[in-house]
Every structure is written in structure tokens, then in C-alpha cells.
Amino acid sequence: MTAPASAEPTAADRRRWARYLVEERAEAYVYQELAARKTGEEREILQSLAEAEHRHEQHWLDLLGGEPARLPRAGLRSRLLGWMAGRFGSIFVLVLAQSAEARSPYDTEKYATPAMRADEKIHYEVVRGLAARGRRRLSGSFRAAVFGANDGLVSNLALVLGIGATGVSSSLVLFSGIAGLLAGALSMGAGEFVSVRSQRELLASTEANEDAALSAGDLDIDENELALVYRARGIDQEDALARSRRIITAAQEGVRRTVTGPIRAHDATSDHELIGSDWTAALSSFLLFASGAIIPVLPWIFGLEGLTAVVVALVLVGVALLGTGAMVGILSGGPPLRRALRQLAIGFGAAAITYALGLLFGVSAV
């Protein structure tokens, strides 16, 4: 199915088709670049999306009667996605592609086929699903990174502004900022170490052992307590009894079922891997907090004083807060500007309170 026969296409129609053509090519390129960085199912899905975009491209080529002598450039968003697809991880590209797929021009385009309109709606859902996968994989580490860096930014900005507002010397403000950086980073690192270590110790204390398996061969196949072990682990009575019978039968036959294991409901090793290393978590938290906390102190490190140092600190922290907020917005699929401004308002609000308290105590001290 190509163009409707009701009207002869105009020059404006042909220009619009050419624009659609280059956009479809740009989108196909994005999906091909992303597919090249993936393996398995995700690679196949992205390649299928690229093939669909090529079908759409061919539709506009047919309407145009072949490759035009001159073509417009793809839009800025499409060019940016193409550039990012070849250089960065897919999650940022996918969340941007998701919002692009949500605004299909074919809904009101009379020369687009119904199949193309349906394809675009399906593409949106597919890209949203792939982006959701990436968000789930990234959510834990990203949350920790944003929380650690943002905590360092806000807490140390509030500290140096509050101390500076009392009228103390610049050297004391600098010392307070460095002390706040070290204290906060060490606290974050120690807290993360204790948290992860406690989780691992708790997991180790609740791991199943093989003691019951050693006696499985001596149990009565119909009347036994092995089913109670599974029921205690949350398995319903019928399934627990069926499992225990299979295990006892295997034990009596002298066969060790390593896959269904007599008592383990899942592999405990995977739980330890999911929780991660306590030392790695502690070091990451320390560095993330420190990376944020050093920014408000930079003006005093480079010798600035008074109001100049305060203004520079606010600018530096403001840019950092806007950046982290916008990144959160992009990854969550929300408006980046709104998330950035919210982050900025929260950070500056906390700093304003401590600055006001510093002024109050500074005046009182005088």
C-alpha cells in the first residue's frame, strides 16, 4: 500500500516524505548500533526494530520514485541518538528513543499506511520494555551513585555556607569543608560496609545445609518430615510432599539429585553475588560522597574568599545538582528539566537554611 489516489502529491508532500525518509534511516542506524553492542535476545529485538525502520524507509522511497538528489538532514534528536548509540551504553539512548517513538507523526499522515502507524505504536512498547530492562539493571548502582554524590554536594555546601556565614576566616571554612568531606565519606563508607556485611552474615545464617539430605534414604516415602522443611520455606503442602517423595526415591536409588537438591530452594551463591562485596560497597560509597563533597570546597581550595567564594560554590554545586537531576529525569522517563530544577531547589533550600543559621549565630556572637 502506497499513496492514496485521491489527490496528486504536492511539492510540500515530497519534502515531508524526504524528511520522513532521513528520519527512518537515522532511527534504523540507532537500532543497528545498539544491536552491535548487545548479544542474545536483546540483539535480535533491536535488529528487528532496525529492519522495520528500513521497511518504512522503503515506503517513502517508493513514493518519491527513488533516491532524491538532495535530502534534508535528520533532526537534532535523531543525530544525537545516533552519536550516543555508537559511544555510550544503550540505557540512555533507549530512554530518549522511547520518548521519540511516543510522538509518531504518522498518526496524522495520510500517506502513511495503517501498518506503519501500528508499527510505531508497537515500537514504542518494545523500546519501553528494553529501557525498563536497562533501568532495572542500573537502578541499584545508579541510586547509590546519585544518593552518594548528591548527599556530598548538599551536606558540604550547607556546612561551608553555614560556617562561612558566621564570619570566620577562609582557612577555617576550608578546614571545616575538608573535615566535613572526610567525616561524611567515612560515615557513608562505614555504614555501607556494616549494612552489606550484616546482610551477608544474615544470609549465611539462614542458608540451608545438607544434614537432612544425609538421612533422606532412611525416610518413609509416605510418612516423613522432609516435606515440613519445604513447607517451612514457604512451599505449599502438595508441592512440598511431591518434592520430598522425589528426593526420597532418588536417595533410596542411590542417585544424588544435584539440580533439585534436597533442601535448597535456590542457589545461595547467587544471593551473595546480588548483595555484593562489603569492601567494594564501602569504597564506592566513600568515593561517591567525596566526589560530591569536594565541589563546594573548591573555591576555598583555590584561594577565593568571602562572597566571591560563596557565589562560585553555589554556581558549581548548582550545575552539579542540575546535572544529576536531569540524569534522573532521563533515566526515569520523566521531564529532565523538572527533575533538575527539583534537585536544585532541594539542595539550595538546605544550604539557605544553614546559611541563615550561620548569619544568626554570627550576629549573636558579635
Score class of each variant (00 low, 15 high):
M1T: 13
M1N: 13
T2K: 12
T2D: 14
P4G: 04
R15T: 08
Y29S: 12
Y31P: 02
Q32I: 00
E33H: 03
A35S: 09
K38N: 07
E41L: 09
S48M: 10
E51Q: 14
E51K: 09
E53S: 03
L61T: 03
G66H: 06
P72M: 02
M84I: 11
R87E: 08
I91A: 12
F92M: 10
L94S: 00
L96F: 08
A100Q: 12
A102G: 06
R103M: 07
P105F: 06
T108E: 13
T108S: 12
K110D: 13
P114M: 04
D119W: 08
K121F: 00
V126N: 08
V127A: 02
R128H: 13
L130W: 04
R133E: 12
G140D: 04
R143Y: 10
R143N: 08
R143V: 08
G148E: 07
A149T: 14
D151Y: 07
N156E: 11
N156W: 04
A158D: 02
L159Y: 09
L161A: 10
I163H: 06
G167V: 03
S171A: 11
S171H: 11
V173P: 05
S176A: 15
I178H: 06
A183N: 09
S198L: 01
Q199A: 09
R200P: 00
E201T: 01
L202S: 14
N209D: 15
A216L: 14
I221F: 01
E223A: 11
Y230E: 04
Y230D: 04
G234V: 01
D239G: 00
S244Y: 06
R245D: 05
R245F: 07
E253F: 00
G254D: 07
G261F: 05
A265K: 09
A268D: 13
I275K: 02
A281F: 07
F286V: 08
F289N: 06
S291M: 14
V297H: 04
L298H: 05
W300P: 02
F302P: 03
V310I: 15
V310H: 10
L314P: 00
M327L: 15
G329D: 05
S332W: 03
A340N: 03
Q343H: 13
F348Y: 12
F348W: 13
A350F: 08
A352W: 05
Y355V: 08
L360M: 14
